[in-house]
Design a protein around this nucleic acid. Sequence first.
DNA 1: GTCTATACAACGATAGAC
DNA 2: GTCTATCGTTGTATAGAC
Lengths: 233, 233
Amino acid sequence: MDLKSFEKQVAVSTADICREIFESRSHSIKIKKEPVAVRNLVRIFKATLKLANQKGFHAMSLRDLCAESGMSMGGLYAYFKNKEELLTLIQEQGRAIVARVLGDQLAGIDDAAQALDMAIRSHLYLSEVLQPWFFFSYMETRFFHAEEGKRAIAGELQTEAIFAGILQKGIASAGFAIPDPLLVAAAIKALLQDWYLKRWKYRRRNISVEAYGDFVISMVRAYGAGQTAKGEK
Amino acid sequence: MDLKSFEKQVAVSTADICREIFESRSHSIKIKKEPVAVRNLVRIFKATLKLANQKGFHAMSLRDLCAESGMSMGGLYAYFKNKEELLTLIQEQGRAIVARVLGDQLAGIDDAAQALDMAIRSHLYLSEVLQPWFFFSYMETRFFHAEEGKRAIAGELQTEAIFAGILQKGIASAGFAIPDPLLVAAAIKALLQDWYLKRWKYRRRNISVEAYGDFVISMVRAYGAGQTAKGEK
DNA sequence: GTCTATACAACGATAGAC
DNA sequence: GTCTATCGTTGTATAGAC
């Protein structure tokens, strides 16, 4: 598992999932030719993420989006019925890619320590490759409407639950001892999020994804070891 | 140092600083009577933070702000010349309060371990009492214009430098060993920010500020201890 | 299938009555 | 010192030409 393989996997998944979105929404998308639609969806998503991450989704006007995507007003509205649906589309696409790629990575690992490594590194690599989407998703969540907002919170709690589960398992198998798995899981999430929220900072300091991953893992390990030591006194 | 004393200190500072803002801006603020101006500034800030944190500063219309603050359009424009200046005013006020309160707390502590405790807890308590401002400041930073944006980044790096300094000192005084103080400082910041960015989560789980503070401190300590252990091998 | 032109609503900001 | 009325601009969304 390295960054390059993630890039490839995400690139393939992105096209696949745009195709799936096109098919599942063929009733509302006015374009009928698949290759055209998929190409334009990719363009729209890329342009939206760029602009929305600069000035915010709300502040990004559809005129801005026309210019950035190289499409026209009418052209855009062939893919969604209003601006909010564009947001839904982007969330749908991102979530689908994340689920697919992470599912592939985490399948069939039993050892808790190994699972912890894998989960942390996978999240980190994925958020590195899909940084614009992760950033967007984090920053815009509070503006989402009811349903989309619930989905975002559910996503946050779900990945947290994955970490908590691994830590719990780690306690059982005695590799490391952690009295408050959920709290540590929350901390792991916070550290992983910091990576894609403040990319500028880590880039400026020449810290690589790999190095940051090592750091997060050693942090969690040290905490587990410290708690063991205390407990064994 | 407990939460209650922070509340009092912040309440006093807020009024003080609104008074100072009024005085320093008496040329641009059209209101001349201090008591009226200070009362209205406090109202405007509170209303702005509430609305901006719900829907975003850009999406918050000044008509919304009229309703929330109980003032009129013309009334608002007596305190700032445009919407952007309102943002500047809020940032100025928040930064001033933070600098004053934290300055009071951290003055004259020499021991590194004690300073680490104090710095973490102070930040945490302050962000608890001033949560709306911290949240606002974090979430809106990316929309700030040149000067205000630089100030925000400088603020982030400055508090990080404080933590890094304490950790460095900790190495020197041999209390704990940390090979990468700046990285650990960044992690501390991320954990402290998570507290005010995801308040809903920690509240839902009945985790108190004190408990979270203990957790962050023990995390850093454990990491320091782990590195010492390795180094001594 | 894509573009231009336009309708209509909401915004920030100001001028002048009270 | 505060309010109401109104201006010009900019936004989303659509209808109809090509």
